[in-house]
């Protein structure tokens, strides 16, 4: 019988302690961010989708070696190059120039293997995370075109 009453007493006490804790939380500052009215700044190492990097003249640093394409576990990068003649010190040389760099973001798992395997520092992560669409085509990025748009 004693256990019965002590249970009631201790039980009520535990409930009051709990209520006290939740009541104190009322007066603590709000920690939630009211997205989309407020947004957070992404950290410096945030891995978004990849983006081509331009050199000083605005051309892509990419030499179209295809390391990123081979490293990608999901096969979401496809690139192509054309060979053009350029004049260096009066001699005509052939040079590979990037002609296409497509990213299929629907397949990408943001692992970062492509950036890590690039020996020329030609690709980097963007800080973009507001990516939502009902159309699949919106996630097929033409990175060369995006680079040109950024240059313009």
């Amino acid at each position: 019988m004693g256990g019965y009453f002590s249970d009631i007493f201790n039980g009520s006490k535990s409930l009051l302690i709990g209520m006290g804790i939740t009541f104190r939380e009322f007066f603590k500052p709000t920690v939630t961010v009211q997205y989309p009215y407020q947004t957070l700044k992404m950290s410096a190492r945030f891995r978004g989708h990849i983006e081509l990097i331009a050199d000083e003249e605005g051309n892509p640093k990419c030499v179209a070696c295809g390391m990123c394409q081979r490293a990608c576990p999901s096969g979401c990068i496809s690139l192509d190059s054309v060979s053009v003649d350029i004049e260096v010190d009066g001699k005509v040389k052939k040079k590979k120039v990037l002609s296409k760099y497509d990213l299929d973001f629907t397949k990408c798992s943001l692992c970062g293997q492509c950036v890590e395997n690039c020996n020329f520092g030609a690709i980097d992560f963007s800080k973009e995370y507001n990516l939502a669409s009902t159309r699949k085509e919106d996630f097929h990025f033409n990175l060369l075109k995006r680079l040109e748009e950024r240059n313009a």
Binding site: V31, S43, R45, F46, R47, S109, L110, C111, G112, F125
Partner: peptide
């Protein structure tokens, strides 16, 4: 959230770290 922020700053992701 504090842990996720810490790990995000280091690894670049919040859940699928790699």
């Amino acid at each position: 959230e504090h842990i996720l922020d810490m790990l995000e700053a280091v690894t670049g992701a919040r859940l699928t770290y790699c």
